[in-house]
Design a protein around this nucleic acid. Sequence first.
DNA 1: TGTGTAGAACCTATCATACAGGTTTGTCGT
DNA 2: ACGACAAACCTGTATGATAGGTTCTACACA
Lengths: 239, 239
Amino acid sequence: MQGRSLSQEDASPGLVSAAIQAITQHIRTEGLGPGDLLPSEADMTRRLNVSRTVVREALRSLSAMRLIDMSAGRRASVAKLDISAMSMVIEHGVTTEQISVQQVYDVRRTIEMRTVALAALRRTDAEAAEIADRARLMRENCKKPEIVMEHDIAFHEAIAKASHNPVFALIVNAFSGVTRRTWVIGWRTRASEAEQLKMIEGHQEIARAIGAGDPRRAAEHMAEHFDKSVKALIDAGIA
Amino acid sequence: MQGRSLSQEDASPGLVSAAIQAITQHIRTEGLGPGDLLPSEADMTRRLNVSRTVVREALRSLSAMRLIDMSAGRRASVAKLDISAMSMVIEHGVTTEQISVQQVYDVRRTIEMRTVALAALRRTDAEAAEIADRARLMRENCKKPEIVMEHDIAFHEAIAKASHNPVFALIVNAFSGVTRRTWVIGWRTRASEAEQLKMIEGHQEIARAIGAGDPRRAAEHMAEHFDKSVKALIDAGIA
DNA sequence: TGTGTAGAACCTATCATACAGGTTTGTCGT
DNA sequence: ACGACAAACCTGTATGATAGGTTCTACACA
C-alpha cells in the first residue's frame, strides 16, 4: 500500500520534494501568514497519501530554510521572515572555498552603501539612537575586540534595519556569520591602537551622518570604511 | 539505549539540530570541498549515537539548503554552491506579504547596478556574447511574453555571472523566482507594443555597453531599466 | 457562579525495524 | 583483457511504538 498520489508535479524526484511543494502551495493557496498553523503531520500523511516519515522530512526541510517553525507538541506554523538559512549557505561557500572573503566584502559594500543612504533618509529617531549607541559602545570597549566586533555587527544590522527594507536587513544578516569568522583578522592587522581607533571613529562618522539625515555623507563614510577594511584583509594575506 | 552524546552544544533543542551542527563541522574540519562524500547514514548513526531517523532529517535539512546533494544508493556529497534555497525564502516572504515586490526591486536595482558595472569590466568575450544573445532573443521573440521573460531572467543572470563574483550571481538567482511571478504584470502594463520594444532595446543598450567595456554607461542603462520597471509595477497597482 | 486543576485528546520527537530499489565493486568465466 | 553477474552497501519509504509536550475540557471545590 503506497499508491502514488500527491496531487501533481513529481518534477523533482522523491516523495519528499513533492510533499514540500504541496506544503508551500498549501501556504500560498490558503493565504497563510506568519504564525498561522499548518495541518498536523498525521493529517498531511492522509492527505498526501505518504508515510509520516516523508511528511516529517518535508517539514524538517522547510524548517531548515526557516519557512516554518516547529516545536514539540505543537503543530508547525508559518515562520516570520528569517534568512539565517542563507547565512549557512554563505558560510558553507566560504569554508569550501567556493567564495572568497573579499568577494563577500564586495557584496557587502555594494549593499551597505545603499542601506546607509536609505537609513539616513528613513531612520526613525529611535533607530538613529540605536546606531549611534553601537558606535559609542565600540569606542568604549575598544580594548576588548570580541565586544567591539559584536557591536560592529549590530551596528551594520541596525543600519540595515533602519533602511526599512527587510530584504536588505535579511542579506546583511546573512553575512554576519562570515563576518564573525574574519573580523578579528582585520582587527589585528590594524597595527597601532591609533588605527583601531580611527576605524571606530569611522563608524561614529557614519552614525552622525545618519543622524543628520545626510545620505551622501553617510555613503561616503561607509565606502571609506569598507575600502579600509578590505585593505586590512588584503594586508593580512586574505585573497 | 539512547545515551546523549553528540559531542557538544545542544544549544538549539533537538537532536536533529545537533546532528546538523556535527555534520557541517565535519565538513569544515575535514576540509571537504564540493563533490566530496560524507559518511554513510549508518556511520553517522553510530558516531553520533542517534537513530537513523535523526540523521536522515539532518541530512535532509542540509539538502534543503543545498549544502549537500543526496541521491538514492549513493552517499551524500558536499554540494556546489547553490542558493535556490534563498529563492524559496524570498518567495515565501513575498507570498506571506512580509516583503513587497517593490522592495525586492530596490534590492535588485542596488545589486545589479554593481553587477553590470563589474561585468563591463571583467566579462570574457564569451560572456559578452551570451549577454548580447539574450537581448537579441528577447527582441526576436517579442510577441511571446513567456519566452521574453525567460531570456530576460537569463540576461540578468548572465550579467551577474560575468561579474565574476559568485555571491552576486547567487543573490540575483535568488530573485529569479519572484521575478517569474511578477514579470508578466510589468509587461502587460507597458500598453503599447512600442513601449515593450523600448524596454527590450534598453536591454540591448546594456549589452552593448558591457561589450564595449563601459561600466558607467552600462550602469546608467541598468538604472534606467529598473526605474522604468518599477514605474510599470506601480502603475499596475503593486505597492 | 467562578475558578483551578487533573486528565483526556492530540501532537511532535525519537527509536527500531523492514523491505524495495539504486550503486558500486569485485569476481569469475570466457 | 574484458564483460556479465552477483554480493555488499546505501538510500528511500513505510510502519509501529514510546516518551514527552500542549491544549482544551469537564469536574470538583470555593
